[in-house]
Structures are given as C-alpha cells and as structure tokens.
Amino acid sequence: MKKKGNANRRKFLKNTIAFGAAALTAGSASTLAHKTEAGSKGTTKKVKVLTTEGKVIEVEKTVSDCKIDPCTPPLGREARQGIPGRSFVMVVDLARCKNARKCIEGCQRGHNLAPDQEWLKVYLMRDHPEGEPYWFPRQCFHCDDPPCVKVCPVGATFKRQDNIVLVDDNRCIGCKFCIVACPYSVRIFNWKKPPESKVPIEEYSPEVSQPAQIGTVSKCDFCPDRSRVGKLPYCVSSCPMGALFFGDKNEDAVSNGTETIRFSELIKERVGYRYREELGTEPNVYYLPPVERMFDYKRGLESLPEEKQKVYDDIIYNRNSKKNL
C-alpha cells in the first residue's frame, strides 16, 4: 500500500505542478493544461529551477504518471487477472449526448481502428411510438455475467476481477460465437487486415488491444492501460459534453474529466438504470435517463451527412413493425 500512496502523491505533484491552475477548473486555464505524454513508466523530465543564487538551471525531475502498479499493461496470463481492488464502471448521461461522435473518433484514434470500425456506437433510440428519440452511446457493458465469455471455446475472451471483459487476440480463433452471444452487438470482427499499428506484436497485451489481428474479434476494452497511468478512457476524455463518466466503483467516484461525482449519489439522484436489465447480464455501464436534455436530438441528426440520416428514419417515423403483423 505504501507504493500506492507514493504513486498517488507523485500523481498529485504532477497534477498540481504541471497543470498549474488547470487541474480542477479546466475552463479558465485550459490553454495552460500541460499534457506530459510521459509514457506509462515513471519518466524523467527536465524542469527549470530557479536556484537561491538566482540562476535558472535545468534539473532532471522524475515525473510518474503511475497510479497502478504495474504501470505497463501486463502481458500474457497476468492480463487475465485484472487490477486488484478496482471495479470499473461507466455512467452515461443521456441528457447530455448530442451525437457529436467525438467519443467514437477518440476511441478509433486511440485504439488505431479502421474508420469503419466502431467499438463505440451512438444509436438513436426511441422507447415507444410516442416517445421522443434520444442519442444512446453504447460501449461494451463489461457485464458481470457476460454471455460472450460463457460461449468462448478457447477462453480468448475473459472476465477480469476489475469488471473488465477483454479479448486476447493472440488466442482468439475467430469463431464469432461471442459476437452472436452478445445481446448488445458490441463486438466487431476484423474481416480484413487491420490498419498498421505502432505497437509491435511482441508487446501485445489484451489491455491495449493493439496490434489488431485479422480474423479475430475486438471490442471496447475500457482502456485499462490508461487507467494504470490515471487517465480516463479515450471516449470519456474526448466527449465535449462530459456525457461519459468513468471511475472505480470501489472508490465510489466517477469522473468525466472535469467533474468528479460520487457514483452512488449520481445513480441515486438521477435514477440511473442499466440497459435491458431483464437479460440478467449485469452490465457495468449505467445510464442516466434523458430527462431535461441539454439538446434536441435533431441537432445530432442534422450534423450528419444526409445518407447517414436515412439510417434513422425507421426509428423516428414508423417504428410500427408490429402493426404489419
């Protein structure tokens, strides 16, 4: 635990020093937000120090982003364990989503996905014919009773103790049974050769999900490699509306980058629910109902190219398939 304490403190130093004023109120000082892409290991950075003699010298300073030991994503068997004591959850505030699709782009960039591969999809939902449509971002739900893991014949996809369900592309045989078993259409398949990745194949870890391999399944991984260095998942940090919250349920805190809220209070106050609870999959993604929305759903629709808008016709105008029977 000593280690963790130290890590926390170091992280804190980094926060306060590098971010300056920007750490907690991102608005005013956002231009100063100093992003030290220090990598996952504790790295040394040169800082300018004004000495007592009045000279400016450059001093090597160890800056560690490390929040969880080890900071580098583990390879092989260890990756199946999960981060001890963590219980990752996501909360999606449907009232804030306006289909800006920045989360998708951030995710694709971060995970080096092809432009047509979306781990994260934003659906337009309408609960009943009288209902108002709303945008519905859907990541992997990282279920506690995951139907996809049950059916994997080789254990290539697995449930970890930190709630995360991952895919080991080195083991996946590509039977696609998990895609079939997932009731949320979360998983996608590498039908063709995936884009080149900077990560060498020897360093492949299920936590990073890179490099992707042809003929294997991939899906949202909750970015545990980023959590190790105290960073929020790509989608969360790229959402301009702060609609996505991520955190550790054991810590009872979720954050969207600017706000940090107690998870239990957020769920209680906003009547958080889980999508299709009746399926019994026990998801770890919670939704806050789209009440008192910040935007009309149409804004998200109008920003899309016309041919893409047609996809939603069904949802908006005639979801009356029952009548035809």
Binding site: I17, A18, G20, L32, H34, K35, V47, K48, V49, L50, T51, T52, G54, K55, V56, V59
Partner: peptide, 19 residues
C-alpha cells in the same frame, strides 16, 4: 530569470526550496 516557452507555448519555473 529569463525562460523560454516550450513547443506548446508553456513554461514552468520551479523555485528552489530555499529560494
């Protein structure tokens, strides 16, 4: 002191503990 900004236009100057 005279300091120079980095590539993103930022610079941090630390003051030594006993300064």
């Amino acid at each position: 002191a005279t300091v120079e900004t980095d590539s993103s236009g930022l610079v941090d100057l630390y003051l030594a503990q006993d300064y």
